[in-house]
Design a protein around this nucleic acid. Sequence first.
DNA 1: ATAGATCATTGGAAGGAGAG
DNA 2: CTCTCCTTCCAATGATCTAT
Length: 203
Amino acid sequence: AETRTVASPPEDEAQRALLLTAARCHGVGTAADLADYFRIRPAEAHPRLEELVADGRLSRCTVEGWSVPAYRHPGVVIPKQVEGRALLSPFDPVVWFRPRAERLFGFRYRVEIYVPAGKREFGYYVLPFLLGDRLVARVDLKADRAGDRLLARGVFVESGEDREEVAGELSSELDRLASFLDLNEVVVGRRGNLAKTLRAVRA
DNA sequence: ATAGATCATTGGAAGGAGAG
DNA sequence: CTCTCCTTCCAATGATCTAT
């Protein structure tokens, strides 16, 4: 095998390249959104972003409801509609940067495995439920290997969502996840404002 | 105010010990 | 060799405290 030595790029150039990649992955985002993607300090990201704007590689824009300016990648396309249905990992890019998730979806999310048990709001290991272009619910899951069951210990719907529809879609997704995890059945607990509807849907 | 450091919390994976 | 049991280690972010 042949190896080539390539000089490390200057830091500012590397940061611009990383921020441009972040912008491509985000479509549109605030300086804080883009900086966090590769963990660049905001104080350094700001001048790098302005340099990219000056070069024409990014454009500045405003987003309705956002209090700070945004940066848009020129290649971004806006889909006519977004179809999707997924239980997200706590570390999924959709929710990774909590302020962005909250700003975009009105979805306040914390990974409560790090929160003392008594102070947990939703549960130990809670996955957001993405449906279409919204985060419509969250569910506290546990794979009970010994019992061969997927436990949905708490199920919570966001306000303003259609409970029946969300419960139906979530029910299907839980079956899919149980199958993926090679677990025999899904057991829905009693905690949460969607637990009752979900249990009824599955009955 | 803001940044940095430190500790807290569990599931699971990996590896060793010991039994058969 | 295979299996089980046990211990150790790792992953991640949030809460809290300290320092600037």
